[in-house]
Computed example of a mutant assay.
Amino acid sequence: MKLSKCLGTNKAQAQRDWPAAYASLGAERTRRYDPMELIKIVTPDGDEMRRAMDIFPASELTYDPLANAEQPTADAWEQALEITRRRALRRQHKQLSSSWEAQIRMVRPYLPRGVSPEKMQPQHIRQMMLAMEGDGQSDSTISTRMATLSGVFTSLIKSGLHPDLLNPCSRVDYVSRVQRSHLTATEDHYRQMLSSDIKNDPLLLRIVFLGVRVGEAIHGRVEGDTFVIEPIDGWSPKNKSSIRTIPIPAFLRNSIVDCNADAFGNVFRKAREDEQLVPHSFRHGFVQLARQLHCNPLVIEAVLGHRLPTAMMEVYGSGYAVGTMREEMQKIWQRLDKMLVKT
């Protein structure tokens, strides 16, 4: 365990990497390791023992208990992914997004060896999550990737190929607390931030008045009286539904954003009074204001870039007109203006 922690990886990988790492430490090794510290190892015969690090035989240091394990059933997984793609095309009349394909590419290296999709168990999902965590992936990243994998199992069940399969992801708590509950901005939050040192920051104002995500506020562009969110070099919206054109208030039509998300996050944290408040809170607040003002919920969904509730609404027509969106958004803008007057 000590060896694994020092090398920042799992036990088997640590045993493989240790000789080279140990040699490279040189004079510093006495500071990092206690040469006589006893740690647990697994011998080629499967026995566990505790040995001093300096007297490891080379065969023990290089032994990988997983070396002879069967490789993942690649064909079975590829079939499962293809079923998922075909199901999405049949139900949504469009291909799965490039972001879905990217998430799957990142998940595949963590699939357990020799375990086909129908044999996956909750403990396998848990092992994958721990491995991702060990590689430094954030809770939200792990949650997104597990949700993507969960969709593959759902497709296997719904396709009839494995109707009796129990989705192993549904039996593991993989959603991070941050994803479960973003704080919704209240009127007090709006007043506090819109009277703070960053009250004139165009990035904050775009987030507040348009209900957009931080990345969209940074990379979207103003065209006349509209705000266009579409893929550009080095960045793309969250999904296809997020590609949209929405109205923008007159006072933001000349706004220019010249900072990145990290820089904005730093100034935002310094300006806020509530430590739970995050930029995304104002996206939730935008929805809350829309409910209070009885805005058309489907129009607001389109403004936010959410997928519309039925396939028919996405197949027929070309979405809501900018003028229709403006009518609903003006109700929210007027409420925000009243908040500023009271500040």
Results as ranks from 00 to 15, higher is better:
residue 263 A to M: 11
residue 272 R to M: 02
residue 260 N to L: 07
residue 224 G to I: 05
residue 239 N to P: 02
residue 251 F to G: 01
residue 243 I to V: 14
residue 275 E to I: 11
residue 266 N to H: 14
residue 229 I to R: 01
residue 258 D to H: 15
residue 226 T to L: 03
residue 228 V to M: 05
residue 243 I to D: 00
residue 244 R to E: 02
residue 279 P to G: 13
residue 252 L to G: 09
residue 266 N to E: 13
residue 237 P to M: 11
residue 253 R to G: 00
residue 263 A to H: 12
residue 234 G to C: 09
residue 254 N to Y: 10
residue 257 V to N: 06
residue 267 V to D: 08
residue 266 N to C: 08
residue 233 D to K: 07
residue 247 P to F: 05
residue 276 Q to R: 15
residue 252 L to M: 09
residue 269 R to A: 08
residue 277 L to W: 13
residue 264 F to S: 00
residue 219 H to S: 03
residue 219 H to T: 01
residue 221 R to I: 12
residue 220 G to L: 04
residue 233 D to W: 01
residue 282 F to T: 10
residue 264 F to V: 00
residue 243 I to Q: 07
residue 287 V to R: 11
residue 247 P to R: 02
residue 242 S to F: 03
residue 285 G to I: 12
residue 258 D to Q: 15
residue 276 Q to Y: 11
residue 223 E to F: 11
residue 270 K to D: 14
residue 222 V to P: 02
residue 247 P to C: 01
residue 262 D to T: 14
residue 237 P to E: 12
residue 240 K to S: 12
residue 226 T to C: 04
residue 280 H to E: 07
residue 258 D to E: 15
residue 241 S to G: 01
residue 281 S to W: 13
residue 258 D to N: 15
residue 235 W to D: 02
residue 232 I to E: 10
residue 278 V to T: 08
residue 264 F to R: 05
residue 246 I to K: 00
residue 248 I to S: 00
residue 261 A to H: 04
residue 248 I to D: 00
residue 247 P to K: 02
residue 251 F to S: 03
residue 281 S to T: 08
residue 268 F to C: 04
residue 248 I to Y: 01
residue 249 P to R: 08
residue 251 F to R: 09
residue 231 P to Y: 13
residue 260 N to W: 13
residue 265 G to D: 06
residue 285 G to N: 12
residue 220 G to F: 05
residue 280 H to G: 10
residue 246 I to L: 04
residue 287 V to H: 03
residue 288 Q to L: 09
residue 281 S to P: 03
residue 273 E to S: 07
residue 231 P to T: 07
residue 263 A to G: 09
residue 243 I to M: 07
residue 268 F to L: 04
residue 257 V to H: 11
residue 258 D to A: 15
residue 284 H to D: 14
residue 228 V to W: 13
residue 229 I to M: 05
residue 237 P to T: 11
residue 258 D to P: 10
residue 219 H to V: 04
residue 280 H to S: 09
residue 277 L to T: 05
residue 256 I to W: 08
residue 276 Q to K: 13
residue 253 R to D: 02
residue 277 L to G: 01
residue 239 N to D: 08
residue 246 I to Q: 00
residue 282 F to D: 05
residue 277 L to H: 10
residue 227 F to R: 00
residue 235 W to L: 01
residue 255 S to M: 04
residue 274 D to N: 15
residue 245 T to A: 02
residue 241 S to W: 05
residue 223 E to A: 07
residue 270 K to H: 13
residue 283 R to L: 12
residue 255 S to R: 07
residue 252 L to H: 08
residue 250 A to K: 15
residue 231 P to C: 05
residue 276 Q to I: 03
residue 252 L to D: 08
residue 273 E to F: 06
residue 274 D to L: 11
residue 237 P to K: 14
residue 256 I to M: 11
residue 273 E to M: 07
residue 244 R to K: 10
residue 260 N to Y: 12
residue 242 S to D: 01
residue 268 F to H: 13
residue 229 I to N: 04
residue 223 E to L: 09
residue 279 P to C: 13
residue 281 S to R: 09
residue 286 F to E: 01
residue 271 A to T: 09
residue 248 I to V: 09
residue 286 F to K: 03
residue 276 Q to E: 13
residue 269 R to S: 12
residue 235 W to H: 06
residue 278 V to Y: 10
residue 275 E to G: 05
residue 243 I to G: 00
residue 257 V to T: 08
residue 233 D to N: 02
residue 258 D to R: 15
residue 231 P to R: 09
residue 253 R to V: 01
residue 243 I to S: 02
residue 247 P to H: 02
residue 259 C to L: 15
residue 278 V to D: 01
residue 247 P to A: 06
residue 249 P to A: 11
residue 222 V to K: 06
residue 253 R to L: 03
residue 283 R to M: 07
